[in-house]
Simulated assay, not measured.
Amino acid sequence: MADQLIRATAADGGIRVVGVITSKLTEVARQRHHLSYVATAALGRTMAAGLLLASSMKRSQSRVNIRVRGDGPLGGILVDAGLDGTVRGYVDNPTIELPPNAAGKLDVGGAVGREGYVYVVRDIGYGYPYSSTVELVSGEIGDDLTHYLVNSEQTPSALVLGVFVGADGVEAAGGLLLQILPRAAEDAEMVSLLESRLSSLTGFTPLLRAHKTLPQIFDGLVGDMGLEILPESQLVQFNCPCSFERMLGALKLLGEEELRDMIETDNGAEATCHFCNQVYHTNSDQLAQLIEDLRDEKQAARQ
């Protein structure tokens, strides 16, 4: 099943439903960052959440950044996701592993920690980005970002996330976002019904592993509430815009003295992109050219 995002509405537009399948892109992240089982689950859940949060933005260049910082051994998680369907991310300590939790599942909460914060930044493509911070609820990512939506965006929401990692890699990953908009929030009976149906879900990945499609999952939740699935599905992918040229630009910011030290000490430089783990190498001639460029720029500024 292709990695994709699908949007829908119900209750005459009073309910917003978005689902995303991220199995392949989570496997890409696992391989790129050499992630452990629990680190794969933590990063995979956060990447799915980033795509779901970005899905409601308007401008094509809009992006959401999610930073999770807990007191667990995983350290921090940073994810960058866009309305264009691209996402990237990393964790501080990708190789840590923990025993399963009491429910026999990957202990994401234990890896992330129960004390800490979630930071969400929404860049709408112009002006100053909107940022918000909430405390961690459980470290399980889904609970924490639901807490963010309810408290910072004041929208009754449910966020269900999942990653299933087998012996050969990621078998299923994705998430579901359900939001009750103001026009439907006052219908207590409908809200209670939705809460009951969501609580009955055993998880998101079991549905994918049972070969349920996103429209079928939507139908099981709100099919009797005037479900309308929007016609266009959106492909999503792990994508990082880093490049050799961007790396050279970053090295140039270090200044002439630091660049010269790299030439004399290491006869070149190596840089690794945190988001995608791509390694770039430069030789002494390329560093010397950066120094020459800096001198030319200084001379031009004086004229």
Rank of each mutant, 00 (worst) to 15 (best):
A39Q: 03
R260K: 14
F204T: 02
S152Y: 07
K212Q: 14
G70N: 09
E171N: 04
R246Y: 06
N267M: 15
D84Q: 11
L159P: 00
L52Q: 08
G169C: 10
G255N: 09
S157Y: 07
R114Q: 11
R114G: 13
T86G: 05
L149V: 09
I15N: 10
M247T: 09
F204V: 00
T155H: 09
S138H: 06
T146G: 10
A185L: 14
G268C: 07
L294P: 03
E171D: 05
T213L: 06
T40N: 03
A158P: 03
E195Q: 12
A41E: 15
G70L: 08
E228F: 11
L290N: 04
Q61S: 09
P206W: 03
I124P: 00
E297Y: 06
K58N: 08
L78A: 12
L53M: 13
G127H: 02
G203D: 12
A184I: 04
G268H: 06
V191E: 12
R30F: 00
A8V: 05
V121F: 01
H274C: 06
G82Y: 09
Y90D: 01
N277W: 02
G255R: 00
R122P: 10
E270N: 08
E264K: 13
N239V: 02
L221I: 14
T40S: 15
L230V: 10
K58E: 12
A10R: 11
A158T: 04
G139N: 11
Y148I: 11
L290H: 10
C273D: 15
F204N: 12
E256F: 03
Q299T: 07
S56N: 15
A48Y: 01
R45M: 07
V165L: 05
T133G: 04
C276N: 01
K24F: 00
D84R: 10
A210E: 08
E232A: 13
M262Q: 02
I217L: 07
A173K: 10
Q154I: 12
R63I: 13
S55Q: 14
D266E: 14
Q234E: 12
S199K: 13
G174Q: 06
A49N: 07
N277L: 03
A250M: 05
V137G: 12
S138L: 08
G203H: 11
V112H: 11
Y126S: 00
R197D: 04
R16Q: 13
T46N: 10
L106R: 03
A39S: 14
K24Y: 00
L214E: 02
E171T: 00
A39D: 02
L106F: 08
L253I: 03
H274D: 09
H34R: 15
S55T: 08
L221W: 07
Q31R: 13
S243K: 05
D80R: 11
G113F: 00
L176V: 02
S152F: 05
Q216F: 01
S284N: 14
R302E: 14
L98F: 14
M1I: 01
V120T: 04
Y90F: 11
